[in-house]
Design a protein around this nucleic acid. Structure first.
Lengths: 292, 292
DNA sequence: GCTTTGTCTTTTATCGGCAATAGACAGATC
DNA sequence: GATCTGTCTATTGCCGATAAAAGACAAAGC
């Protein structure tokens, strides 16, 4: 079966959405840039648009024939990349299912369960191993170390070191640095969500990641920024599978963020450290509660 | 060609060395434990020992027939695992060769150059990516970020944060913790090398890793301990390919270590921080000098 | 003269297959 | 009764092959 064509399918869907809004399509290279794919894929998309009768396409002449229907899109399951599929499937197993620490992980079994080849599973496990949740015994199986209390404590310990340093670096950014504008934008979304907390509290997860990543980036240190991936994935799945008191928790975190943001703006190192510490402490507590 | 049999070859060599010393061999499971391989491999080794006329083997009766010769061993090139081979080859390219930052890395080319399959190269690159020297463009090539000044500064920034914290944790270890004994042993080796510095200064590299890893382990944090891999690999190849003033540099580092070790023993946090900072600063400077 | 398109080549992502290695289990041996 | 050996099965590590996707280059169009 070789490579999946999910890049094509995903880009196709985004192209149909584009076509739904504006009534014409730009040149091939421009469209490629807009969709983030190569011209080869753009041409495959255009060919298919013609096939399903959405478009006439001859050289530069692209004429939209009708409004797209829901049935023109590829089903969303088919647009995910293999690694996303594996990640979700794997995280469900270890966070939701009864996965005991110390358990062996079997590549072949995982591959069969998801219906893919072993190579993809192996590559996923190698990439995933940097999250500290699994460990390889050479020439033998992987061992699940588990989403335990120790894991959460070790993770948050490093997170706190990194974020305190990043927040301090943030305060030293020159006034014209784009991060300040992004901070304004992020703050505005905080107010928007708080203003309609009952309905919008699930939007917090994504905003949380956006905010903390912005702070970490101020460190200008690739190791610190990369480590944020670990935090992000843990909190991502944590939010997804543990919804007890979600509204209340998120509201509290939003308020803490606002204090934190104000502290960053003040550029006062004592205030920043205080706000940062306070927020990270409550984030850690939330995480720990979900484990025991 | 499937799997290499380097596990067998390496274990075979170690078994021959064992046989050179003691005149008999233990049971299969015991031998497996001693060599760190499965019984399947042990039996393959015993079969080969018989074939080359080093041993008679029938059930429990194992009789050594003669002293091993140099020609009984497999050549060392054949005992390295594929990932070790790729790693060396790759590091030589990016540290020694003219590898410009921003350069593209081609999986197929690398594989052909080393004479192996692409899967192994891919897996290596994925594992290697956590060292922050390369980066993947999805569906496209890897980009070499290069062993630059920025890289060294980012690396040492994190190293210093982690090691200061680990050193502080070390001082809090209970007196009966085995780490103190290991520290004694490490200190003794320091004195031994310093006593014959002219000849033994190349032994420093390995000792350095052993010492700092011991310190990092005191953090009891998997992320801190794992990060030491990044430091270790960088310094390992750094020592290997930059030998200017090596004797002098190593002598200085050994002295700094001794002060650092004494500080750890004192359990005095001010003294520890001071000694640790001082040593890390000079380690950073050495590293930076080798870059520009 | 710059951008677009047609065509072709190169490279990546993924699969199935096979030898090396690990590991399980029952019967044999001390 | 604990450990060892014989035998068999399961799993990993690695390869080559192939479709998807990227990308190079020249000719065409504005």
């Amino acid at each position: 079966m070789a490579k999946q064509n999910n890049v094509f399918k995903d880009a196709f869907n985004r192209c149909v959405k584009l076509l739904d809004q504006s009534a014409s399509l730009p040149s091939e290279p421009e469209l490629g840039a807009a969709l983030g794919v190569s011209r080869t894929t753009v041409r495959a998309i255009l060919t298919r648009l013609e096939d399903v009768g959405l478009l006439t396409w001859e050289k530069r002449r692209k004429i939209v024939l009708r409004k797209p229907l829901a049935s023109d899109y590829f089903p969303t399951e088919e647009t995910d990349s293999l690694s996303e599929i594996i990640e979700r499937s794997f995280m469900r197993r270890i966070l939701a299912g009864g996965a005991e620490p110390g358990m062996q992980i079997n590549e072949l079994e995982l591959a069969r369960e998801i219906g893919i080849g072993t190579t993809s599973v192996r590559e996923f496990l190698i990439r995933f191993s940097r999250f500290g949740l699994i460990e390889k015994r050479p020439n033998s199986h992987w061992v699940l170390k588990g989403f335990t209390r120790e894991f959460a404590l070790e993770l948050t310990e490093v997170r706190e070191m990194f974020e305190l340093r990043s927040a301090a670096a943030f305060a030293r950014l020159p006034a014209e640095h784009p991060a300040w504008l992004e901070l304004d934008a992020i703050e505005a979304v905080h107010h928007a969500i708080l203003g309609d907390i009952e309905n919008r509290y699930p939007d917090f997860s994504e905003l949380d990641e956006r905010f903390h990543l912005l702070v970490h980036r101020a460190s200008k240190n690739r190791f610190i920024v990369d480590f944020y991936d670990v935090i992000a994935i843990v909190f991502h799945y944590h939010y997804q599978w543990n919804k007890t008191n979600a509204r209340q928790r998120n509201a509290r975190a939003l308020e803490e963020h606002l204090v934190y943001i104000a502290a960053l703006r003040s550029r006062d190192s004592v205030q920043i450290e205080d706000a940062c510490r306070r927020h990270l402490k409550s984030a850690r507590e939330t995480l720990l509660q979900s484990i025991n």
